[in-house]
């Protein structure tokens, strides 16, 4: 999968018909079409195996009629857009203050060690990427992590591993 993703780097990208409709909707929603860049980038990321490739930018530039450089400015500014391929399970461990006080950083290190990965790296089977991220807005349930679009809270190393292993088994098949 990771290899397929990397190959995808230079390929053409196109949104699904629903995706295209979404972009048109966002374009008409705001007074200034630059405001539609963030939701449209999210949509591309979702439809492009979790990352925003240069091909996505070129595609968006065409259909939104906004220069590539300006869409790329937005994508580069925000860390929640992945500019490199990620695994099918993108595990984002919060390391900001509340989580850090409750062992978030240690949790991130533990997971990296368990799965023999550096932060941000894609595992050889293309399944996992572990990232250290800043506050995800779930401070009351620290430490926590986000896997793809769902939150997993009140974690300890064992619990986190268990969740990841279950998901890996589910997605891997």
């Amino acid at each position: 999968m990771a290899e397929a993703n990397i190959q995808n780097k230079n390929n053409l990208f196109q949104l699904s018909p629903e995706g295209k409709e979404f972009v048109q909707g966002e374009l008409s929603r705001y007074e200034n079409k630059y405001s539609a860049i963030i939701p449209c980038l999210y949509r591309c990321q979702k439809e492009n195996q979790g990352w925003v490739s240069p091909a996505c930018i070129r595609y968006l530039s065409q259909i939104m009629e906004i220069p590539e450089a300006h869409i790329w400015e937005v994508a580069k500014f925000y860390t929640m857009f992945n500019k490199e391929p990620v695994g099918r399970l993108h595990i984002q461990v919060c390391c900001n203050i509340s989580c850090a006080l409750n062992g978030g950083r240690e949790l991130a290190d533990h997971l990296c060690q368990t799965y023999s990965l550096n932060a941000g790296e894609v595992s050889s089977d293309g399944m996992l990427t572990i990232s250290r991220v800043e506050c995800l807005g779930s401070c009351g349930t620290a430490p926590m992590m986000q896997i793809n679009e769902s939150y997993h809270e009140n974690l300890n190393p064992e619990k986190a591993e268990q969740i990841i292993n279950e998901l890996r088994a589910k997605y891997g098949s």
């Binding site: 220069p67 450089a69 300006h70 790329w72 400015e73 580069k76 500014f77």
Partner: peptide, 9 residues
């Protein structure tokens, strides 16, 4: 020609 931008933050 819109080639240039400010990237990262």
């Amino acid at each position: 020609t819109h080639e240039l931008g400010i990237f990262e933050r």
